[in-house]
Design a protein around this nucleic acid. Structure first.
Lengths: 217, 217
DNA sequence: AGGAAATCTTGACACTCGTCCAAATTCGTT
DNA sequence: AACGAATTTGGACGAGTGTCAAGATTTCCT
């Protein structure tokens, strides 16, 4: 019984701050180890001992920094969002033409498909879990919402640069991009070498589709 | 050591047939119990004892009809396909106008969203599992492919009736419809009462989008 | 009816799991 | 250096897991 009440009477706020920092720092460290382990093994088969082993600490320490397993997983989900969402923001601002934006956005999606594949599969795993465990839904919905806003910014900007309004709302646009990314991820993890290029082409084409600026085929 | 080698010498094929039938019948029965249990609890938390309890048999019988847990799960996945894919086939053939097809197809999707929500969440759960367990990928990919063909038939027929060719290929079309269905499922299971109607409108609009026949908004 | 094969039950096994806790260790202050 | 608090360890617990096999029960043919 040492933490979580910030414990004893401290005169100077500096000491308390330092301690909180250190506590939070280790939490983050353990959270990252958990994130890595979860993205390796998946939610169904990741135990606290697996996570501890990946962190270099013993398994008992996890209950010192997290109340229980659910607390740890929730922390990981929130941390995933921090890692993931920020990635596309500069893409929107730097592009000056519709095709340029499309190319840059597609390149960014392909990059994260290749580099962060295991992290993304964890996301889809946890989102599926939220279909069964109600306690996950709030966090999952929040991440979904922020991803939807990200897509909305991209589509809106693309439509602006192309001069034609979008033909569908943000929820549908997000669902569509999420759908092709998910398919691309499955193929990427299956070792399909054409998955990145297909995703790139798909993203570019889908931006054209949602703004009605694509030719028939 | 009784089955799987079809065992001893039988003179009449009729007897063997009957036995195989009975064996397969019970396999199906247990598979359905497993399907129900999995769709209730999710892959991560379903044990063989849970499944047995839902089937009315003891837990030992599962290893009489299935080699191991993976064998059972695989059987369930294949059975899901049989249950699920056949549902839309008559929709395509009966419709005679584009808007009629759209309405009927959307209605069918809404119906299965409402009635088979727990079954669909199992599908997304198992597809996520296939991102981690390579042994699932073949079956998952096969189901994905047959769903893609189903979507392709609908979109192709719709484009035919509307007189305008589709603006994207089957993989992208499937990814898009899968995306909005997944979002709708999440909202449906969260208790959002507008999820069915939103899905209906989304499907209709998406058919218009992929054929380039929708007005700007 | 009798007996063999098929089917089902039951209990056990070797693990792994999340959780907890007392002891050991490290850290920061005086 | 020394003391108290914070941190870390490692073992223990009870519950739950998949798997297996021996025995009980049912089914079916002669």
């Amino acid at each position: 019984m040492t933490r979580s009440a910030t414990s004893t009477g401290e005169h100077t706020g500096r000491i308390a701050r330092r301690r909180v920092d250190k506590f939070e720092e280790r939490r983050r460290e353990l959270g990252d180890a958990a994130l890595q382990t979860l993205s390796e093994l998946g939610y169904a088969r990741t135990s606290l001992r697996d996570i501890a082993q990946n962190s270099g600490f013993s398994h008992g320490v996890l209950h010192y920094y997290f109340h229980d397993k659910f607390d740890l997983i929730t922390y990981c989900v929130r941390r995933y969002k921090a890692v993931c969402v920020q990635r596309y923001d500069d893409v929107v601002t730097t592009a000056s033409t519709a095709s340029g934006l499309a190319a840059e956005f597609a390149a960014a999606m392909v990059a994260t498909l290749v580099e962060d594949a295991v992290l993304h599969r964890l996301w889809y795993d946890l989102r599926s879990q939220s279909l069964f465990e109600e306690s996950f839904r709030a966090d999952v919905a929040e991440i979904d919402a922020s991803l939807e806003r990200m897509i909305e910014r991209v589509v809106r900007r693309y439509a602006e640069l192309a001069g034609t309004p979008s033909v569908c709302g943000a929820p549908m646009a997000y669902a569509m991009f999420d759908g092709i990314f998910q398919q691309a991820l499955l193929r990427q993890l299956s070792g399909d070498p054409s998955a990145p290029e297909d995703l790139r082409a798909g993203v570019v084409q889908m931006l054209a589709v949602v703004t009605g600026t694509c030719e028939r085929q």
